[in-house]
Design a protein around this nucleic acid. Structure first.
Length: 1113
RNA sequence: GCCGAAGUGGUGGAAUUGGUAGACACGAUGGAUUCAAAAUCCAUUGCUCACAAGGCGUGCGGGUUCGAUUCCCGCCUUCGGUACCA
C-alpha cells in the first residue's frame, strides 16, 4: 500500500471536524492547559509558509499535552478589524465586512488543510457585534473607574465621588490629569452637573483629552509617524501638520510600575521584556523647580511675579488706572490686607493671563474678587474667567461689596481659611520645572535648556532675542522627528535672553532652547550640567557657555564625565566629597527642605490614544450631552457599526462615521436613531471615532474561555477553571503594542475582580520570521544581439572566478557569438564581470531543488522574454542565483502552503517547518529541503507496511534489545525536546529512529504503536491512519504518551575517545564498570597509545569515567 | 548612539553541565535498479595534500583550562528594535 497522503489527510480532517475531536470542555476533572496563538489579521493575500510556523509549534505542544492527559484549550479566531479592509473599501466601495468574511473563508480553508487541532467551536472575530459588545463593555468599565494610589488599584468612580462629596479632593491620591484644581466638599456639592463631569473626566481611566496628531488635510486623516516621510505623507506626498484633536486616551501610565513589576513573574523572552522595560522607561531622580528671574515685559525684574499673558503690555496701563481708582470696597479690603493682618503678600489689580484680578496672593495662588451688583451677562463672563484662572491653578473667591464694607473681619477670616487650605509650594511664582536623574550634580548647572515647543518660551523670550528664537522654532518645526534623530552631530539652539535662579546659589542661569530637548519627555526642560552630560557638554562648547567642573579629580577638558560609580562631588557646597548615591539623597533632601523640588520617579510611558478616525473599528458606546461624553448603559450593547455611503472622512474633516445618517442616540427608546431626530433633549449625537486595532485584541484570550456567553464577558466559573494562558506563541513585533496593552487591561480586570490572575500569559514564545530565498536569472547587458540573452549562473561564476572570457565557458555561447558577422567591442564584451549582468527576480515556483530554472515556464511567465536566448550548462540545465530576502510578492519568493500540501502533504510541511531550525530564530525558506521530511514519512509508512505487496504488517513479537533501545532513546529525546520547544531536533530524532528501526527490520507492535503516538503531534494525519490500522477505533488524539524507561538504555561499555593534549586520536571500547585507575591502565596498555606517545612519558593522564580520557605530554 | 539576537561545511542546521565538532537533512559526485524517466537503494562528501601520514578548522585577536563552538577580555560583521530620555 502506498502512502497516499492526500487521501489520508482529507479523511482525518473530516473525521476531526465531524467528531469535534478537539473541543475543550469547561467542565473537567483533568488539569487544564491553555495553548494560544496570536490570532491573525485575515489579509486578502492568504497565508504563506511563514505564517503557520507558530501555529505548527503550538499545535504540536497542544497535541502533546493532550497525550499527557491535560484538558487542552487551543482556540483560534480573527483580529478582523483593520486598515487594509478599510482601504480596500475606499478603493472599491465594497463593504469591509464582505471582504473580511471572504478573507476569513480562505484563511479557514488554509488552516484546516494543515491539520491544526483548534477548537473551532470557540472561534471569535473582533469585528463581530457579539464580540465587540464586550470590547465596548470593557471600555465602559474603564470609563467608570479611577486609579487610587493609596490602594494601588483601579476603583469604581463612585468611591471617588463619595470622597469628593465628603472631603473634597485635597486628600485624594489619584492618578489624574496635571492641571487639577483643588476644591472642598461643599464646593463639590455645589458644582453643576457638567462641572462635576468635567472634573471626573480628569480622573477616569479613560478620558477625553486634546492630543497632538499628525493631520494630513489632503487625505483628511491622521497619519502614524512612519506614514510620514520628510514632513509629507508617504502616500501622495501631501503636507502634514500638527493638530490638536479631542480624543479618548487610556490612562495606562497609572499602571507603569505594576507593568514593570509584573515582568518578573512571567516567563517571557528576555528581549521582549527588555523592550517593554525600555518602553515604560522608569527613571529615578528629582523634580526641581528653577524660579524664573526675568520676564521681558512687566514691572521691573521682580522674580517670577509677572503672571500676565502675551497681551500684558496692552493691559498694564488699564491695571494702573484701576489701581489708582479703587472702589470703596476694594479700598477697605486693600488697606486691611496691606496692613499684613494675613501674613501673606497680596497684589492689587494684578495681571494674570489676559485678566486683571482685584487681589491676588501669588504664593498661595488665591484670587479675591470684589463684586458689585451682578448682571446676568456679567455672570457668564465671570464664570469663563474663573474657569481660565482655575486652569492656571488659581483659586477664585468672590465677595460682595456690602459684605466687605459691613464685615471686614469676617471676610478676612474667610480669606485666612482659604489661604490655609491652599497647598502651594512656597516658591509659588512661576518657575521652570525640570526632571533630572542627577540631582547630585545640581551645582554643575550652568544653563537650562527648554524644548523649542515649550509653552514658556514665548513668554520669557526678550525683545532682543525674539527674532532669533522664533527663527529657530520655525526651523526645528520643519525638521521631521526622523531628521532630528538621524542628525545627532549638528548642535543647534538659541538663547531666550531670560534667566532662571539657581535654587541653592541664587546665581542667575541663562535659559536656552535646543531641539535636543524633547517636548514630550519629562517636563520638556532640562537643567544642563555640561560637565556631567555629553549632550549638555557639546551644547555648552558650541555656544561658549561656562562648563564648571564639580567632580573631584576628573579632567573634563575633552568630554563630559558621566560615570556615576566613580563620581565624587566637588565645588558643590554641602555635597562636597560625597559619592553619587549619597550626594543624590542629600541634594533631594535639601531641595525638599527649601521647597524647590522633590524625589520623583519618572516614566516615559505616555497615556495611550484610544480614538481612531476610521470606519472599520469598534464604535464607542458614547453619546454627547452638552459636549460631555455619556456612556450607553451596558444592557443596550452592542452599538453596531452604522452603514455609510463612503468610507472616507466627511468634507468637514470629521471621521467616516460622520457620513452615517442613522447615528444618534435616543435616551428614551434606548436605540440608535436617525440624525434628524437629534433634539438635544432626549436624542443626542453619537461618538464619531472608532477604537484602535488593539482594542479587540486586549482581552480576546479571556473571551475564548466562554465565547458564546451573551450575559457576561465570561462566566466566573469558566475563568476560574482556565485562569490564564499557559503558552502563548506569536511574533515579536507585538512586543510593545498588543502585549503591553493586554497586560494593562488584564491588570485592570484583575483590580475589578473579574479575572483571577493579573498577568494573562505565563509563558510566551516569539517565533522567528521565515524569510524567502529569491531566485535570480542574469541578463547579459549587451546590445549587439537583438534579443535578450540569459546566462546560467554557474557559467558566469566560473568565468569570473577564473578571470576568463565568457565564451570560453560555453560552447553554445561561443557558437552564438561566432555566428555573428561582426563583433563590435571585440573580446572585451565577453570578459566576465557581474557588472555586465542585470539580475532579474524569477518566480521561485519555477526553480527546482537543484536551483535549475524551468525555462519554458519562465518564458510563459514573462511574455517579453519569450524569444530570449538561454545559455545553459553542458547538460542543458540553467542555474539561477539565490539570495535570502524578506518574503514578499514583489520579490516573487512567496511560497504558498496550498501547493506544498498538494504535492507533499500537510504532515511533510509541518515536519519541514519545524525541521528548518530553532523556533525562535529567523531562517530562510527553501522548498527544496522538503523532500527530506517527505521521504522520512514514506519510510515511516513503509516500516508499518513490510508485508506482501507492501501490505500492512505488524507482529506481536518481542522486539530486539536494539529496537527497545531505539524506541526509548527516542521517547526520552522527543519528550525533552517538546518541553524545551526544540522541535527541530526532535524531527532529526524521528529520522534517526526510523533509520535504525528499518535496519533492525523491526515490525513489532510494542515498538511501532508507541512510535505512532510520538509522531502524532508532529504529523497527526499519518499517525491517525497508522493508529487505526493498528486496530484502534478511537482517535489517537488522547492516547497516552509512551513512558520512558531508563532500563532499556543502560549500557555496559562505552566507546571512549582517547585524546592526546586535548585532540581525539582514536576510540577504545571499555567497560563502564572500570574504575579510573583501571581505565588508565587499560588505555596505557593499548598499543595505539604507545604508538601515539612514541616513547614519550605522559606528564598526566586525565580520566573522566563515562566521558573521556586525555593524555598530556 | 543605546538595547537585543546571531556569526559553525556548498546550504538549513546539531553538539542539553567545558569532554569524540559537523548529528539529521538538502545539494553534489559515483554506482545499483530501469528501455528510459520518476521513485528507491548503496557509497563518498569540512578544508588542505597526488595518496597516506600529517596539518588546519566553529567571525577576528588574546586569555583561562589537561581539554573551549561552549567560560572571560578586546574587536569585526549581519539582522531586529529604538528614545538625543535629561
Amino acid at each position: 500500500m502506498q502512502y497516499n497522503f492526500n487521501e489520508i489527510e482529507a479523511k482525518w480532517q473530516k473525521y476531526w471536524a465531524e467528531n469535534q475531536t478537539f473541543k475543550a470542555e469547561n467542565d473537567s476533572d483533568k488539569e487544564k492547559f491553555y495553548v494560544l496563538d496570536m490570532f491573525p489579521y485575515p489579509s486578502g493575500a492568504g497565508l504563506h509558509v511563514g505564517h503557520p510556523l507558530g501555529y505548527i509549534a503550538s499545535d504540536i505542544y497542544a497535541r502533546y499535552k493532550r497525550h499527557k492527559g491535560f484538558n487542552v484549550l487551543h482556540p483560534q479566531g480573527y483580529d478582523s478589524f483593520g486598515l487594509p479592509a478599510e482601504q480596500y473599501a475606499i478603493q472599491t466601495g465594497q463593504h469591509p465586512a464582505v471582504t473580511t468574511a471572504a478573507n476569513i473563508k480562505t484563511y479557514r480553508r488554509q488552516l484546516d488543510q494543515l491539520g491544526f487541532s483548534f477548537d473551532w467551536s470557540r472561534e471569535v472575530r473582533t469585528s463581530s457585534p457579539d464580540y465587540y459588545k464586550w470590547t465596548q463593555w470593557i471600555f465602559i468599565q474603564i470609563f467608570n473607574s479611577w486609579y487610587n494610589k493609596e490602594t494601588d488599584k483601579a476603583e469604581d468612580i463612585e468611591t471617588l465621588i463619595s470622597k469628593f462629596s465628603s472631603d473634597g479632593n485635597a486628600n485624594v491620591n489619584a492618578v489624574c490629569d496635571d492641571d487639577i484644581v483643588s476644591f472642598s466638599a461643599d464646593e463639590w456639592n455645589s458644582f453643576s452637573d457638567v462641572k462635576k463631569q468635567e472634573i471626573l473626566l480628569q480622573y477616569r481611566l479613560t478620558y477625553l483629552a486634546d492630543t497632538e496628531v499628525n493631520w494630513c488635510p489632503a487625505l483628511g486623516t491622521v497619519l502614524a509617524n512612519d506614514e510620514i516621510v520628510n514632513g509629507v505623507s508617504e502616500r501622495g506626498g501631501h503636507p502634514v501638520v500638527r493638530k490638536k484633536m479631542t480624543q479618548w486616551s487610556m490612562r495606562i501610565s497609572a499602571y507603569a510600575q505594576r507593568l514593570l513589576d509584573g515582568l518578573d513573574k512571567i516567563d517571557w523572552p528576555q528581549p521582549l521584556k527588555d523592550s517593554q522595560t525600555n518602553w515604560i522607561g522608569r527613571s529615578q531622580g528629582a523634580s526641581v523647580t528653577f524660579p524664573i528671574l526675568t520676564f521681558p515685559k512687566g514691572e521691573g525684574t521682580a522674580p517670577g511675579y509677572m503672571t500676565g499673558g502675551n497681551n500684558s503690555h496692552l493691559l498694564l496701563d488699564r491695571a494702573k488706572e484701576m489701581r489708582a481708582n479703587p472702589t470703596a470696597a476694594e479700598s477697605v479690603l486693600w488697606e486691611s490686607i496691606k496692613s499684613k493682618k494675613l501674613d501673606y503678600k497680596f497684589r492689587q489689580q494684578h495681571l494674570i493671563d489676559d485678566f486683571i484680578v482685584d487681589f491676588v496672593c501669588l504664593s498661595k495662588k488665591l484670587v479675591i474678587e470684589v463684586d458689585g451688583e451682578i448682571h446676568e451677562t456679567q455672570k457668564e463672563a465671570d464664570l469663563k474667567r474663573t474657569k481660565v484662572l482655575n486652569g492656571l491653578g488659581y483659586k477664585v473667591v468672590r465677595f460682595k461689596n456690602e459684605k466687605v464694607i459691613g464685615n471686614i473681619d469676617g471676610v478676612l477670616e474667610e480669606i485666612k481659611a482659604h489661604l490655609e487650605q491652599q497647598n502651594i509650594p512656597p516658591s509659588g511664582a512661576r518657575g521652570i520645572e525640570v526632571f533630572t536623574t542627577r540631582p547630585d550634580t545640581i551645582f554643575g548647572v550652568s544653563f537650562m535648556t527648554l524644548a523649542p515647543e515649550h509653552e514658556l518660551v514665548s513668554k520669557i523670550t526678550t525683545a532682543e532675542q525674539k527674532a532669533e528664537v522664533e527663527a529657530y522654532i520655525e526651523a526645528t518645526a520643519k525638521r521631521s522627528e526622523r531628521d532630528r534623530m538621524a542628525d545627532v552631530k549638528t548642535i543647534s539652539g538659541a538663547f531666550t535672553g531670560a534667566y532662571a535662579e539657581h535654587p541653592f546659589t541664587k546665581e542667575p542661569i541663562p535659559i536656552w532652547i535646543g531641539d535636543y530637548v524633547l517636548a514630550g519627555y519629562g517636563t520638556g526642560a532640562v537643567m544642563s550640567v555640561p560637565c556631567g552630560d555629553q549632550r549638555d557638554y557639546d551644547f555648552a562648547k558650541h555656544f561658549n557657555i561656562d562648563i564648571p567642573n564639580i567632580f573631584e579629580g576628573v579632567d573634563i577638558s575633552e568630554e563630559a564625565f558621566a560615570d556615576k560609580d566613580k563620581t565624587v562631588i566637588a565645588n558643590s557646597d554641602f555635597l562636597n566629597g560625597l559619592p553619587y548615591k549619597k550626594a543624590m539623597k542629600l541634594a533631594i533632601y535639601e531641595l525638599e527642605k527649601i521647597g524647590h523640588g522633590e524625589g520623583k520617579i519618572n516614566y516615559r510611558l505616555r497615556d495611550a490614544v484610544f480614538s481612531r478616525q476610521r470606519y472599520w473599528g469598534e464604535p464607542f458606546p458614547v453619546y454627547y450631552v452638552d459636549g460631555m461624553p455619556q456612556m450607553i448603559s451596558p444592557e443596550h450593547l452592542p452599538i453596531e457599526l452604522p452603514e455609510v455611503e463612503k468610507y472616507l472622512p466627511t468634507e468637514t474633516g470629521e471621521p467616516p462615521l460622520g457620513n452615517a445618517e442613522v447615528w444618534a442616540w435616543d435616551t428614551v427608546a434606548n436605540k440608535v436613531v436617525d440624525n434628524n431626530e437629534i433634539n438635544n433633549a432626549t436624542v443626542w449625537p453619537l461618538e464619531l471615532n472608532t477604537m484602535p486595532g488593539w482594542a479587540g485584541s486586549s482581552q480576546y484570550f479571556n473571551r475564548y474561555m466562554d465565547p458564546h456567553n451573551s450575559e457576561e464577558i465570561f462566566s466566573q466559573k469558566a475563568i476560574n477553571y482556565w485562569q490564564d494562558v499557559d503558552l502563548y506563541i506569536g511574533g515579536s513585533e507585538h512586543a510593545t503594542g498588543h502585549l503591553l496593552y493586554s497586560r494593562f487591561w488584564q491588570k485592570f480586570m484583575f483590580d475589578k475582580g473579574l479575572v483571577p490572575k493579573d498577568e494573562f500569559a505565563k509563558k510566551l514564545i516569539n517565533q522567528g520570521m521565515i524569510t524567502g530565498t529569491s531566485a535570480f536569472v542574469y541578463r547579459w547587458n549587451q546590445n549587439y544581439i537583438k534579443k535578450p540573452i540569459f546566462i546560467s549562473q554557474d557559467i558566469i561564476q566560473k568565468a569570473i572566478n577564473e578571470k576568463g572570457f565568457l565564451d570560453d565557458y560555453s560552447k553554445n555561447l561561443k557558437q552564438l557569438i561566432e555566428s555573428l558577422s561582426s563583433k563590435p567591442g571585440g573580446r572585451n564584451i565577453v570578459e566576465a564581470s557581474w557588472k555586465n549582468f542585470s539580475p532579474l527576480h524569477a518566480d521561485v515556483s519555477l526553480i527546482n531543488a537543484s536551483d535549475e530554472l524551468d525555462i519554458e515556464g519562465f518564458k510563459k511567465w514573462r511574455d517579453e522574454f519569450s524569444d530570449a536566448e538561454f545559455i545553459t550548462e553542458e547538460d542543458g540545465s540553467f542555474k539561477v542565483g539565490r539570495e535570502v530576502e524578506k518574503m514578499s510578492k514583489s520579490k516573487y519568493n512567496v511560497v504558498n502552503p496550498d501547493a506544498i500540501c498538494e504535492e507533499y502533504g500537510a504532515d511533510s510541511l509541518r515536519l519541514y517547518e519545524m525541521f528548518l531550525g530553532p523556533l525562535e530564530q529567523s531562517k530562510p525558506w527553501n522548498t527544496a529541503g522538503i523532500t527530506g521530511t517527505h521521504s522520512f514519512l514514506k519510510k515511516l509508512w513503509r516500516q508499518f507496511h513490510t508485508g506482501e505487496n507492501v501490505s500492512f504488517l505488524v507482529t506481536e513479537d518481542e522486539p530486539s534489545k536494539d529496537s527497545w533501545k531505539t524506541l526509548h532513546k527516542t521517547i526520552k529525546k522527543v519528550e525533552e525536546d517538546i518541553e524545551n520547544f526544540s522541535f527541530n531536533t526532535s524531527v532529526s530524532t524521528f529520522m534517526i529512529c526510523i533509520n535504525e528501526l528499518s535496519s533492525q527490520k523491526c515490525v513489532s507492535r510494542q515498538v511501532l504503536e508507541p512510535l505512532a503516538i510520538l509522531v502524532s503531534p508532529y504529523a497527526p494525519h499519518i499517525a491517525e491512519e497508522l493508529w487505526s490500522k493498528l486496530g484502534h477505533a478511537e482517535s489517537i488524539a488522547t492516547a497516552t504518551f509512551p513512558k520512558f524507561e531508563e532500563k532499556y538504555l543502560v549500557e555496559s561499555s562505552k566507546e571512549y575517545p582517547i585524546s592526546f593534549n586535548g585532540k581525539m586520536k582514536f576510540t577504545l571500547e571499555l567497560s563502564l564498570d572500570l574504575s579510573k585507575d583501571e581505565i588508565e591502565a587499560a588505555v596505557m596498555a593499548n598499543e595505539k597509545t604507545q604508538q601515539q606517545l612514541a616513547g614519550r612519558t605522559p606528564k598526566k593522564v586525565i580520566v573522566v569515567p563515562g566521558k573521556i580520557v586525555n593524555i598530556v605530554g
